[in-house]
Amino acid sequence: MTEVKTSKNWRSGLSVAECNRYMLKNEIHSDVTFLVGKEEKLVRAHKYVLASRSPVLDAMFYGDLAEAKKIKIPDIEPPSFDVLLRFLYCGDIALNQDTVIGVLYAADKYDVDELKKATQLFLYWGDVEVNNDTVIGALYAAEKYNLETFKKATESYLDKNITNETVFSVFANAKLFGLEALSKKCIEFMNEKGAYVFQSPFALEISKDTLKEILSSDNLDIEELKIYHFLISWGEGQCEVKGHEKSDENIRNQIGDAVYRVRFQFMDLDMFVKNVCRRNILTSEDKLILQQVIVGNLEKESTKFNFGKRKPTLKVCNVLRSGSHLESWRYFDHKRRRQDHRTVPYWKHH
């Protein structure tokens, strides 16, 4: 507790709200401490004032499960918590686009109805700029409080900011909040730029369900061997997070049935033996079955693997003419084991 030393009666001429503000700012007779945000900033306050304004804080301080003097609040950052306190102490509402999402979350968490209504109105009428730091919170607020206009703004922002680095998080949140059009756009982006997207370090952080959905696409433009190597890297990452040894057995346990989304039959036998058979990600039985499929000795339908052919979007080469010069592309036909020199469609990033 801190008492401000002054010969003047600071209360003179101040309203109740102004006295509360002064005591909060100068930590006079404070009896509870909050550790706010990721950095655990120290914020001192008064139980009586907070309990009189919030039923949740009342139960926190005076209920059967009352908490200790120091209370951690990791899910609200200091600027938003400061706005909450000023409202509880003085009725002040000081919202801006940087804090409004956090304040709405705080008001909802502590059941402060008037502040919650004020933030919803601000989101509805205010010119709130959505950015990388606020977009997920904005989606949460728009979905929970049925703010359709704001929801469209956040969806539009995500739509325009899909990159190799962001596409996985955008896709996961689009699925979470039921944004079907945005989910479809993410899938199309990953289909087209698969070879680059899977090189992003953020790809290793996706959930298993997201991974399986992406690999189920028949339009993914990436070689199956690269998908297989990515799966192993993803499995190693999961082992590291969970403190497991990065053995083939543990990696396979993490990958699970996602491995059945790899179209192994589109590898040639030599590639399959050198890259797949030398490790124990697949069982011996699965390796034998896939080898038989690759050489044509077993019906594909008798296995649990996906044998659908991926069909990435075709892009026609530009034919460059300079006098009599014609730039041609070499086309290799694996089935007929021959090469043609001709201008042909090619797979992007192939």
Rank of each mutant, 00 (worst) to 15 (best):
V103K: 09
K226H: 13
V36H: 03
Y145I: 04
G63S: 07
G256C: 08
D108G: 14
A141C: 15
E188P: 00
Q254G: 00
E67Y: 04
I71S: 05
Y228W: 05
V103E: 09
Q120S: 07
F168K: 02
R263H: 05
A107G: 11
E114D: 13
Y346W: 10
R330G: 05
N191D: 15
K208R: 13
G63N: 02
K335P: 00
H341W: 10
S217Q: 13
K335C: 07
V43F: 00
D113V: 11
T313N: 10
S54N: 02
K41R: 12
C186D: 04
S324I: 13
F202E: 15
E299F: 06
V135K: 09
K185L: 03
A181Y: 02
T154Q: 04
S247L: 15
E240A: 15
E192P: 00
F122A: 13
V49F: 12
Q291E: 13
I71E: 05
F307D: 03
G91M: 01
K175T: 08
N219V: 01
C239Y: 01
I162M: 07
E67Q: 14
S233T: 07
I227M: 11
Y346L: 10
A66V: 09
K160E: 15
F230L: 05
R21V: 08
R86D: 12
E67P: 01
F307C: 06
E18T: 09
F198I: 15
Y145N: 08
I232P: 07
K246V: 14
K38W: 00
V167K: 05
E165I: 08
H350F: 11
Y48L: 14
H325L: 11
E165L: 03
E301F: 02
N253M: 13
D58Q: 09
D108L: 01
L231W: 06
A258Q: 02
D31A: 06
C239G: 03
V16Y: 09
I162F: 10
A45F: 09
V130K: 06
K144I: 01
R279E: 09
L179N: 08
A118Q: 02
G256I: 02
F177R: 01
S207R: 12
N20T: 04
E236D: 07
F34W: 03
K348A: 10
H334Q: 09
L282N: 00
F264Q: 06
N219S: 14
W10F: 12
K287A: 02
P78A: 04
Y48N: 11
I281E: 07
K109M: 15
T303C: 12
V83A: 08
A66L: 02
K315C: 08
R337W: 06
V319H: 02
I251M: 04
E67L: 13
H350P: 08
K311L: 02
N173M: 11
I281C: 07
A59P: 06
K41P: 00
T154P: 03
N306I: 11
V293H: 02
K151A: 04
H29I: 04
T33Q: 07
R310F: 04
I162N: 10
T149D: 15
P345D: 06
Y124C: 10
T303L: 10
L121Q: 14
T99D: 02
E205V: 01
I101M: 12
L115F: 01
I227F: 00
D108T: 12
D113F: 06
I294W: 01
K72T: 14
M23S: 08
